[in-house]
Every structure is written in structure tokens, then in C-alpha cells.
Computed example of a mutant assay.
Amino acid sequence: MTVAGKRMTGCVHSLLLAVLLLMAGPARADDSATSVQAQQRAKAVTQVVLGILSYARWPADPVPLRLCLVGPTEYADDLIKGNLQNSGQPLQVRRLLADDREVAQACDAVYIGKLDHGQRDRLFQAVSGHPVLSISEADDPCTVGSLFCLRVSDQQVAFEVNLDSVARSGVRIHPSVLQLSRRRAVQP
């Protein structure tokens, strides 16, 4: 191969490399945009959860309020960072295993991530009869156990309320939160 041929091959390789890098740029931009959206969703979930907690009343006012994260969660990172509720009251956040026997005594509220049906059943059995507010993050039909079920999208974080679970929980929820859940559920 001649020097001119080597230069031509080198130019072709350089051109191909440049094209590949240009094509990879939008993929990185998409990843960055997705990361920003995920952070925005996490912040929105945090605001909704803190709002729900601020409108809940326990038989005895817990200070600090103990929020336990149970199971793998997608949007709880900001909850772990914060240590104050919207009211300024202290918030203690920690992770527990789904089958932790102390969940009812260690938690005033549980934020539930992805659990299998058996784990969910055992968790709800453990908190049954105790004033524990439960919020499900994962795709939960909101028919069994959880008081609140989040509906997270890029546009908004909405929630559903399981009135039967609220009535059984021993935790009182301000009526305006119940009304808010109805309005948000109706929005497209």
C-alpha cells in the first residue's frame, strides 16, 4: 500500500470515528435528559409524600416522625436526604427489609417500593392494628393495604387513597387530602 493509500485509509477511519462520536452524542443527551427527568420525578414524589405526612395525624404525635423505606424504591433518594417535614418537624428516614419484625414499632409511616405479593402481605400483617401510614410507590392497584398509592409520570405525581385502609389504620387524614386525590385522579 502506498503512502497516499495509507492516508486515505486513515482519513476513512477518522471520518468513521467522527460519525460514531456524533451519533453517540444524542444518546448521551437522551441519557442526560432522562436523568434530569428522573431527578425531577424524585423531587416531586418527595413533595407529595411530605405533603401527605403533613396532613396526617397519629394518636400520639411522633417526634421525630419515623419514615421507613421498604423494598427497592425508584423515587425515594430525595426522601433519604431530607430530615425535615414541610411543617419543620424532624423526619427520621431509614431503610428496612420487607420482613423486618420491628416495622410496626419502628415506623410511623412506610414508603413501599417493589415487593412481591408475599412480602406485601407480611408487611401489611405486621402493621395491622398499629397507627402506620403506608404509601406505595410501585404499580399498586390501591385495593389492599396501602393508604396512598402514587401515580408517577413526567407531567405530575398524583395519588389514590384507599379509604378502607385509611379507616383501619388509626391515622387520621385531613379531608382536603382526600379531596385532592379525587381531583388529581380525574386530570388527564
Rank of each mutant, 00 (worst) to 15 (best):
G170V: 00
A33W: 07
G10W: 03
L133D: 01
T143K: 09
A18W: 02
V144D: 15
F148Q: 00
V49E: 09
V157Y: 12
A109C: 10
V45W: 04
S176C: 01
L67A: 02
Q119W: 04
H130K: 13
S136C: 08
V48H: 09
A38L: 07
V110A: 00
V45Q: 12
A109S: 14
L115N: 05
A104V: 12
E74D: 09
Q85I: 12
M23I: 11
I112A: 02
S181T: 06
D121Y: 08
Q125W: 12
D139F: 07
P175Q: 05
L79Y: 02
R182Q: 15
R172A: 15
A76I: 05
V48P: 01
Q40H: 06
S169W: 07
S134M: 07
F124K: 03
D108F: 00
P175E: 10
F159Y: 15
A126Q: 07
V19H: 02
D108T: 00
V152W: 04
G82P: 09
R41Q: 15
Q156Y: 11
V49A: 12
R101V: 12
D154H: 03
A27P: 04
D31R: 09
A138N: 04
L53F: 08
M1E: 10
L178R: 11
E74G: 09
A56L: 06
D30I: 08
P141V: 06
G170Y: 09
M1D: 14
R183K: 13
L53H: 02
L97W: 03
V152T: 04
D116M: 03
Q85H: 05
E137V: 01
S87F: 12
M8K: 10
D164L: 08
V157K: 04
L91C: 09
P90V: 10
Q92A: 13
D164M: 08
F159W: 06
A29G: 01
D108Q: 06
A18S: 08
A106N: 01
D31Y: 11
P175V: 06
I135F: 02
Q37K: 08
L65D: 02
C11E: 12
V19I: 14
R151N: 08
V144C: 09
T2F: 04
G51Y: 03
G129M: 07
R172P: 07
V70T: 03
Q85M: 13
V166M: 01
A126H: 00
G82R: 14
L16H: 09
D78E: 13
L97S: 07
H117Y: 06
F159V: 06
A38E: 05
R184A: 10
Y55V: 12
Q187Y: 13
V3D: 14
V103N: 01
R172W: 04
A104L: 05
G51S: 02
A4I: 09
V144K: 15
N83A: 03
Q105T: 07
H130I: 09
Q39M: 15
Q85E: 14
V132T: 00
R41H: 11
Q37C: 00
A158H: 07
L115G: 03
V63L: 12
Q155I: 02
I112Y: 04
F124V: 01
H13A: 14
V171H: 01
D139R: 12
D78K: 08
